[in-house]
Design a protein around this nucleic acid. Structure first.
Length: 588
DNA sequence: GCCGTTTTCGGCCCGACTGTTTTCAGTCG
């Protein structure tokens, strides 16, 4: 039972209680608990024996703590099962169809015996469904369209795919409406969530309806979900949903804040506003007594009016950021410009696409002061891994290139396989010729938790291993495939990082993003330090550094948490220091 | 169900759009 599964249970409970007609605030409490569980950096099961620890989590009280405990101990929840038993099986799947809410789902099941998406589809086609109260022909048609388009694609898109599309749409909008200003990405894309369900784009203009109409009639729009004077919601040819919102310039601060979310962060801010006698919406702050609306040009101005410093979008996830801001203790988050080196890069010596030289040229263009060329070790037969002999040639090639590229420090590296028993592909003698060793799991990924944990710990205890690469090996769904993370005790691994002097890699590759944000958050709390690397296999992969930095920001990292923010001389001093003393060096 | 510089009881965020309705319920974000 992991946090995602616990989250699912509470989210189902919220829905079912709503169907039972329970007070909205009760169902909301469960919805919030579901959000909290999904984003909590510590495995709830691991702390479930301590009821007080659970109750300390804001939003989790006595009743929900006890339910988490029961789930942790028995893998079941009687309350949940009883609740499910009072409804027909399959009802919850109906609610996953956009346009179907609790009321409609219940009516459909009770009046028409619909308990699955398939029977719903047949009922719509037969003209039965539209006869339900407040449904009608148009609603039924819309729902049918949603069912069919949902079947064509996954509902989440990788940040690395969504962000470039959002950038392009903003640029198109900018060209089409030179008078529009403040064109911005909002929503989960702006917060840097690893996958996004849809894109949110905002702008300000004096003639909003012109813009929303133009937007809905763009060539690449295949479906218009809604369109009004200030808002349009469409589906693009590639399956991505995009919401556009237009407002007058003077309310842009509140607009951007409102549509950047997260939902719970917004709710927390609105509660805070309320306690100050103010009401916050997307147009500004209204004085409840006088009815006077106060507008804001920037987000920072809204925060300031609420007595808070500016909170970066990546932190707006209801993880205690408002309390921290209130106390004046917000971290100064790392920025992509703080990164000085890239310590995990491939070339065509193994499975990269280009010669080392081309990687060096692009790295220099990006302002990197140092880079490690870390082609694969011999165990990666399919990746053209380097034998001992080829690794020695690889090292010689780097010496030669260093003379050619005096402005970037080139480090000798390898991405070495951690074999199933924890040993590495190269022996001590070979490893000692390298400056940087990134040790990664690439095989036997289904080992059971204790074996896997011991395997990685063994690698961390190797004095030559600089960092553990992409710890969980998960792959995000890229439209074709995905891969689940390995089963490993991350608490043990993160705690071992500082004990052994090993760094944890934040892999920036858009399909990996591994460590993920909650892991980074927890690893940082446990004292681990990081490298943010690109794992680039071609020059165009080197700018993906920004995605790793975004994940680090979501884990509340500052520059001192990330070792490749060090200037080159200090970084070299770091790797030349005996491993066990490296963390102490960072404290100086 | 959760929570507390106003509270252990009584509050709990806010608005747009749609389609079905004659004033608003349902859904979404």
């Amino acid at each position: 039972m992991d946090n995602a599964q616990i989250s699912r249970v509470f989210s189902d409970i919220a829905t079912l209680l709503q169907l039972e007609g329970e007070p909205i605030f009760k169902t909301r409490a469960y919805s919030r608990a579901a959000e909290i569980a999904a984003n909590h950096p510590v495995d709830l099961v691991s702390i479930a024996s301590d009821l007080d620890a659970l109750k300390e989590i804001p939003g989790i009280g006595n009743a929900i703590s006890l339910k988490i405990q029961e789930l942790a101990e028995t893998d079941h929840l009687q309350f949940y099962e009883d609740l499910q038993g009072r409804f027909p099986a399959g009802l919850l799947t109906l609610l996953e169809v956009p346009g179907i809410g609790p009321k409609t789902a219940l009516r459909a099941s009770e009046d028409l015996g619909i308990f699955s998406v398939e029977t719903l589809e047949r009922s719509i086609e037969a003209g039965e469904f539209e006869k339900l109260p407040r449904v009608g022909k148009k609603n039924a048609e819309n729902i049918l369209r949603h069912i069919r388009s949902q079947r064509r694609q996954s509902d989440r898109h990788m940040l690395g795919m969504a962000l470039p599309i959002a950038d392009r749409l903003c640029e198109t909008l900018r060209r089409a409406f030179p008078s529009a200003s403040n064109i911005s990405i909002a929503g989960s894309t702006r917060r840097g969530v690893e996958t996004v369900g849809d894109l949110d784009i905002l702008c300000t203009s004096d003639s909003p309806s012109e813009i929303t109409h133009w937007f809905a009639s763009m060539d690449e729009v295949t479906d218009i979900l809604g369109q009004g004077d200030t808002k349009a919601s469409v589906v693009l040819r590639n399956g991505l949903q995009v919401d556009l919102r237009v407002a007058p310039a003077e309310s842009f601060g509140a607009l951007l804040l409102y549509f950047s979310g997260s939902k719970q962060h917004g709710i927390n801010l609105r509660s805070r506003a309320q306690s100050m006698g103010l009401s916050l919406n997307e147009y500004g702050l209204t004085n409840v007594e006088s009815g006077q609306l106060e507008s804001f040009l920037t987000e920072a101005a809204v925060y300031e009016r609420l007595g808070l410093p500016y909170i970066p979008p990546e932190m707006r996830e209801d993880r205690g950021e408002i309390q921290l801001a209130d106390a004046g203790e917000l971290p100064t988050l790392i920025e992509v410009g703080d990164i000085r080196g890239d310590l995990h890069v491939h070339s065509n010596w193994s499975d990269g696409r280009t010669p080392i030289e081309e990687m060096l040229v692009e790295a220099q263009n990006l302002g990197r002061g140092y880079i490690a060329i870390t082609d694969h070790s011999s165990g990666r037969g399919v990746a053209n891994g380097l034998s001992d002999e080829r690794l020695i040639l690889h090292n010689e090639e780097i010496d030669r290139l260093q003379a050619e590229f005096p402005d970037i420090r080139i480090l000798k590296g390898s991405e070495v396989d951690i074999r199933s028993n924890g040993s590495l592909d190269y022996d001590e003698e070979i490893l000692s010729t390298l400056d940087i060793v990134i040790a990664s799991v690439h095989s036997a990924m289904s080992q059971e938790r204790s074996v896997m944990t011991e395997r990685v710990l063994t690698a961390m205890n190797n004095p030559h291993v600089t960092a553990i690469g992409h710890l969980t090996t998960r792959l995000l769904f890229d439209g074709i495939r995905s891969r689940d993370p390995i089963d490993i005790d991350t608490e043990v691994i993160f705690a071992a990082a500082s004990e052994t002097g090993t760094l944890m890699e934040i892999n920036s590759s858009t399909k990996r993003l591994d460590l993920k944000d909650t892991h980074i958050f927890r690893a940082r709390q446990l004292g681990a330090k990081f490298l943010i690397n690109t794992d680039a296999h071609r020059p165009s992969g080197l700018p993906d550094m920004r995605f790793g930095v975004t994940m680090a920001r979501r884990g509340w990292c500052e520059t001192h948490h990330v070792v490749n923010t060090l200037p080159v001389d200090q970084f070299v001093r770091f790797i030349e220091t005996p491993k066990k003393q490296r963390y102490a060096l960072l404290e100086e």
